[in-house]
C-alpha cells in the first residue's frame, strides 16, 4: 500500500499532520506499538524539515508486511554537506523556526536513531529525498 501526503512549506499550523495521519494508519493496520512510536518520531522530524528547510514537499508511506517505509521528498535547496547536516547540533534553521522551538539540530540524528535504515539523496538546487526504512517484527 502506498499513500501520499502533501506538506506545505513554512506552515507551522498544519505541521505534523502528515506524521499524525501516518500514525493513525499504522495503528489501524495493527503494527507493533513500539515500531509505530519510532516511525512517528522519525516521520515528524522529516516532515518538519520539509516545512522549515525545503519550502514544503511530500511525505510518502509505503506499507508491506515486513517493512514500513517513509519517504520525505522535496524540491528545496538541497543539502551541501550531508555529513555535517547529520551531526547533532548542526542547524541552519531560520530565526522564525527557532522561535517556534525548532533548530536544535537534532532532527537528522533522531531519524537515524529511530529507523532501521536511512538514505539521503540530495542535490544542491534540486532537492532532497530522505528515505526511512523500518523493519517490522522483532529486531
Amino acid at each position: 500500500m502506498i499513500q501520499r501526503f502533501p506538506v506545505a512549506g513554512e506552515d507551522f499550523s498544519a505541521a505534523g499532520e502528515a506524521s499524525s495521519k501516518i500514525k493513525n494508519i499504522l495503528r489501524q493496520v495493527g503494527e507493533d506499538a513500539e515500531l509505530i512510536r519510532r516511525v512517528c518520531i522519525a516521520a515528524y522530524e522529516a516532515e518538519m524539515n520539509l516545512v522549515i528547510h525545503a519550502g514544503g514537499g511530500e511525505m510518502i508511506l509505503k506499507l508491506d508486511t515486513d517493512m514500513v517505509e517513509v519517504i520525505a521528498q522535496d524540491r528545496g535547496p538541497g543539502i551541501p554537506d550531508v555529513e555535517l547536516a547529520m551531526q547533532e547540533g548542526y542547524s541552519t534553521a531560520s530565526d522564525l523556526a527557532r522561535e517556534m522551538g525548532f533548530g536544535a539540530g537534532m532532527g537528522m540524528a533522531n531519524m537515524k536513531r529511530c529507523a532501521s535504515e536511512m538514505l539521503i539523496d540530495t542535490e544542491v538546487g534540486k532537492g532532497t529525498t530522505v528515505t526511512l526504512r523500518f523493519k517490522t517484527g522483532k529486531n
Partner: peptide, 23 residues
C-alpha cells in the same frame, strides 16, 4: 495491557490490504 481495538484485521497482511481498500 494494551487494548488493540482499532485495527482492521488481526493478520498484518490482511490489515494492509484492507487499509489499501479503505484509502
Amino acid at each position: 495491557r494494551p487494548k488493540a481495538v482499532l485495527q482492521l484485521d488481526n493478520n498484518l497482511a490482511d490489515a494492509i490490504r484492507k487499509m489499501g481498500e479503505l484509502e
